[in-house]
Simulated scan of single mutants.
Amino acid sequence: MLVIGLDGTMLNRIKDADAPNLDALMAGGMTSASSLYANPMARPPRPGWSTIATGVWPDKHNVVNNNFTAPNFAAYRTG
């Protein structure tokens, strides 16, 4: 699995751009225009990436802001 995340980039802008490699990757895979929204449990952006990486919400991985003061990644290993 390859996950490419482009913070703050709108999908329609990528589709309109001259980006043949991204076009090929999107054509052969899955593309999502939606954002990962974790409020009220956490404020983006770091908690969102932690949620994607672990597959659990901020109340479990314990990343609720950009400080990473006590992450619980070991309990939710993905690889």
Rank of each mutant, 00 (worst) to 15 (best):
1 M>A: 15
1 M>E: 10
1 M>L: 11
2 L>W: 07
2 L>R: 13
3 V>Y: 07
4 I>D: 07
5 G>M: 07
5 G>R: 02
6 L>I: 07
6 L>F: 13
7 D>R: 07
7 D>E: 14
7 D>W: 02
7 D>M: 08
7 D>G: 13
8 G>R: 00
8 G>Q: 05
9 T>Y: 15
10 M>E: 12
10 M>P: 00
11 L>A: 15
12 N>D: 13
13 R>Q: 11
15 K>M: 13
16 D>A: 15
16 D>Q: 14
16 D>I: 05
18 D>M: 05
18 D>A: 12
18 D>E: 14
18 D>R: 12
18 D>H: 08
21 N>V: 15
21 N>T: 14
21 N>F: 10
21 N>E: 09
22 L>G: 04
22 L>M: 13
23 D>E: 09
23 D>T: 12
23 D>S: 11
24 A>W: 01
24 A>H: 07
24 A>E: 10
25 L>E: 05
26 M>K: 06
27 A>W: 03
27 A>C: 07
27 A>P: 01
28 G>Y: 04
29 G>T: 05
29 G>C: 11
30 M>V: 14
31 T>S: 09
31 T>Y: 01
31 T>N: 05
32 S>L: 13
32 S>A: 14
32 S>H: 02
33 A>N: 15
33 A>D: 15
33 A>H: 12
35 S>Y: 14
35 S>T: 08
36 L>A: 11
36 L>S: 09
36 L>W: 04
36 L>G: 06
38 A>C: 13
38 A>M: 11
40 P>D: 09
40 P>A: 09
40 P>R: 04
41 M>D: 12
42 A>L: 01
42 A>G: 07
42 A>Y: 00
44 P>I: 00
44 P>R: 00
44 P>Q: 03
45 P>L: 12
46 R>Y: 02
46 R>F: 10
46 R>H: 02
47 P>S: 07
47 P>Q: 03
48 G>S: 11
48 G>W: 01
48 G>T: 07
49 W>M: 10
49 W>E: 12
49 W>L: 13
50 S>Q: 07
50 S>P: 02
51 T>I: 04
52 I>S: 08
52 I>H: 01
52 I>R: 02
53 A>T: 06
53 A>Y: 00
54 T>E: 05
54 T>W: 00
55 G>S: 11
55 G>P: 05
55 G>N: 12
56 V>L: 03
56 V>C: 00
57 W>C: 01
58 P>K: 00
58 P>I: 01
58 P>L: 01
59 D>A: 10
59 D>F: 06
60 K>P: 01
61 H>A: 02
61 H>I: 01
61 H>N: 06
61 H>P: 03
63 V>G: 02
63 V>Q: 04
64 V>H: 05
64 V>Y: 08
64 V>C: 04
65 N>S: 15
65 N>T: 10
66 N>T: 09
67 N>H: 09
68 F>K: 03
70 A>C: 07
70 A>W: 06
70 A>L: 02
70 A>S: 15
70 A>I: 00
71 P>A: 06
72 N>H: 08
73 F>S: 04
74 A>D: 14
75 A>L: 05
76 Y>S: 06
76 Y>H: 15
76 Y>W: 08
77 R>N: 14
78 T>H: 12
78 T>K: 10
79 G>N: 13
79 G>A: 11
